[in-house]
Amino acid sequence: MSTLQVSIYRYNPETDDAPYMQEFQVDTQGRDLMVLNVIQMIKEQDSTLAYRRSCREGVCGSDGVNMNGKNGLTCVTPISEVTKGNKLVLRPLPGLPVVRDLVVDMSMFYKQYERIQPYLQNDAAEPAIERLQSPEDRDKLDGLYECILCACCSTSCPSFWWNPDKFVGPAGLLQAYRFLADSRDTATKERLSSLDDPFSVFRCRGIMNCVNVCPKGLNPTRAIGKIREMLLSNAT
């Protein structure tokens, strides 16, 4: 049997009073398609289905969706990895307002990203060539700069669900540490003092949902731990 049962969260504010789940059947012809392929096949049946997608290879971060209860990118998740008993349940990323169907309003997520000043700050004059950086110092950025801002982590984090306006969230904090760890950045003190409150960093309770879902295999919890260490050594 190669018919996949797909249940998708539907909501169009213009026509629906409340969200509902809609059932679709997709003939996969026995292939282990990516979830995105399945969604595209459904879109051909029902063009009103709204979802985001762009690169279809896991680097742009458009298509974060909750698949059978776990956040991930639809384009790099084979159905065999998420389906249970031939059933696929697709919902928008949890914790953010739904715009339509699988599309969520990410402005709160982006706001937290912007809050950590995600750009290099260096008060020294720019040299005529590049700033030098040893391979060892550059290695410190590995596992940090690769973030694609898909929001899978932050929207799987209860602390972010409760306080999306105050807790920076795993994605933002991973980037905060990316600049704290960069040997070329000179704003360490200012960055730390802007994080030294009970919410921005310290709402992380270390449950590691973020690590569990990151489609790029990154570890925000570790980065948050490092920020905490820096805050502590800065304050004592």
Partner: peptide
């Protein structure tokens, strides 16, 4: 080109490095 690439580096682009610290 070199001007534009150095600008990117100054903006923070995390280029891989040689042992001497250059891009």
């Amino acid at each position: 080109g070199p001007k534009a690439v150095f600008e990117l580096e100054h903006m923070g682009l995390p280029f891989s490095r040689f042992d001497n610290g250059r891009i």
